[in-house]
Nucleic acid binder design. Structure first.
Length: 265
DNA sequence: AGGGATGTTAGAGA
DNA sequence: GTCTCTAACATCCC
């Protein structure tokens, strides 16, 4: 379930598992993982300096070179516990015996090997806007970022060029927290409503991180849906007003909302 | 069997 | 050029 909070946790996990160790071997189990031609052996023998997140990307810093990961729909880094049923695309062997897998059922995830000096320009070339978190942006900042956008607010929140990190789950959850009709044109929101969006997005990330950090095993196996308020809950009662949560399709993606407390105006 | 799935991007059309 | 939307990617699960 990789949106910003999950990628943040994936990245922290990688830093914790591998930080300070040397990457002794980078095993390419499925070469479709590569987003561009590269030489995996370039990274072997290098020490992991750390890992950081930008939007939904993880950058594993190996000094002068870096391994950049994007998980798309189903990718995730996991400790290799010896189970043989995983859909492994990469296996990273570290000097103290730790083995980390890039596990990806659908194989839509991608990886790149870049010189560290080129990572920023690589990410910038993807057209990523500012990260939705951890910066505490106010309503005026959000209003300015979405100035002139006529698309429905829920669809607009998915545009990584405006603000990076919000995915299809986060967009529904943020609209719900902001009590906003997901069909409202972004350009029609008042400053007060943008303030609610700002708080909704931050609240969604903060709560998701807190939930998943509190129980890492639950997260890895169950996807963290335990803290969804409307996503995936069509037919269930709204946590705020008990009206039935509904689902509809916007731009080919599911939107979940409560038609009563997210009433249009 | 068929439909839907957390993301991104190329390409078409307005 | 800008904005918007669809299809495609590959595989699994309900």
């Amino acid at each position: 379930v990789p949106e910003l909070p999950e990628v943040e946790i994936f990245t922290r996990n990688l830093a914790r598992w591998a930080g300070g160790q040397t990457l002794s071997r980078l095993e390419v189990v499925d070469p479709r993982i590569w987003g561009a031609p590269c030489r995996p052996e370039e990274l072997e023998g290098r020490e992991v300096i750390g890992a950081y997140r930008r939007a939904k990307y993880t950058v594993l810093d190996l000094g002068s070179w870096a391994l950049v990961l994007h998980y798309r729909m189903t990718g995730k880094p996991v400790l290799d516990d010896g189970d043989v049923r995983r859909k492994v695309r990469l296996r990273l062997w570290f000097s103290e015996g730790t083995r980390v897998l890039f596990d990806d059922a659908r194989c839509l995830g991608q990886a790149w090997i870049l010189q560290c000096a080129n990572v920023d320009s690589f990410l910038d070339a993807r057209g990523l806007g500012p990260d939705a978190w951890p910066g505490r942006r106010d309503g005026a900042w959000w209003a300015a970022r979405f100035n002139g956008v006529r698309a429905p607010i829920k669809a607009a929140l998915l545009d990584q060029k405006r603000v990076a990190g919000v995915g299809n789950i986060g967009a529904s959850e943020a609209c719900y927290r902001a009590a906003l009709d997901p069909r409202r044109p972004a350009s029609s929101l008042t400053l007060a409503e943008w303030t609610a969006v700002a708080e909704g997005v931050l609240g969604w990330v903060d709560d998701t991180l807190a939930h998943e950090l509190g129980d890492e095993i639950h997260f890895v196996t169950a996807g963290g849906e335990g803290c969804f308020r409307v996503y995936g809950r069509a037919g269930e009662p709204c946590p705020r007003c008990a009206r039935v949560v509904e689902r509809f399709v916007q731009r080919g993606r599911s939107t979940f909302w409560c038609p009563r407390c997210q009433g249009s105006r």
